[in-house]
Amino acid sequence: MSIFVDENTKVIVQGLTGSQGRFHGLRNRDYGTKVVGGVTPGKGGTDVDGIPVFNTVKEAVEATGATASFIVVPPKFASEAILEAAAGGITFIVCITEGIPAHDEAVTFNRLVEEFPGVRLLGPNCPGIISPGKCNIGITSGDIALAGGPVGIVSRSGTLTYQALHELSQQGIGQTTCVGIGGDPVPGTNFIDCLAAFQADPETKAVMMIGEIGGSEEERAAEWIKHNMTKPVVSYIAGVTAPPGRKMGHAGAIISGSKGTAQAKMDALRAAGVHVCLNPTEAGQKMVEIVKGL
């Protein structure tokens, strides 16, 4: 099984007529994802390579029965797009947009929770989600993933997610689902959401968790793992050598004062029984070892 999405998930792309939306939307469709529509205000009635375009999310949902949306719009329109998706009947939103102001994210997240409690937002600023062989929403290259499980992946970083997929796939180890939660300070879906879903998924036998400096989500995840997770978890945390006070590329990747260091995160995870590895290659090898021993 996969988490959050599967082979039946119908997806619309908000921003399908833009160059990024078209590129990634069509790649997702080519992968086998049921991309059933696009949304661009003013372009309703047209199509992108046969995919019908609608003026609003509501119209798209009514016409196609879509439950998921892939948002590929510029930062200043992203918050509005997220709320429109939720109001239009979408229950799973993937927003890859990078560069949304933190205050907008905070307001949007709280409005979603209050007004649309059943809706899950993945991202913003994330690579998306791929359930190999079933559904790929986002910008992950489908060919580095391998279907069939048994590993679930959850990661804050895009390229390190690819690295993890690649290391496992090369060793013949498949993935149930790989979720990129994104590197922003207010992610819609966090580590614990994904760990809980993997713990509940019978086909996922082990989880790879990739974190980075900044915030305390990894520490919270460690606490959750300690009390709830029975499946083995392998983890890698990027940024051991990152200097304090500097944003390391991601808006959320910053050590503030003494908070958010990689060392504190690794210590917390180790104390929760997680296999903490010092680089992505080592994490891949450890996971191979664990899966072979299952």
């Binding site: 804050r156 390229t159 690819y162 980075e212 990152a242 590329g249 991601h250 680089n279």
Partner: peptide, 10 residues
């Protein structure tokens, strides 16, 4: 990628 860049430093 920011994550890979950080990881490279490490």
């Amino acid at each position: 990628g920011a994550g890979l860049a950080m990881s490279t430093l490490d």
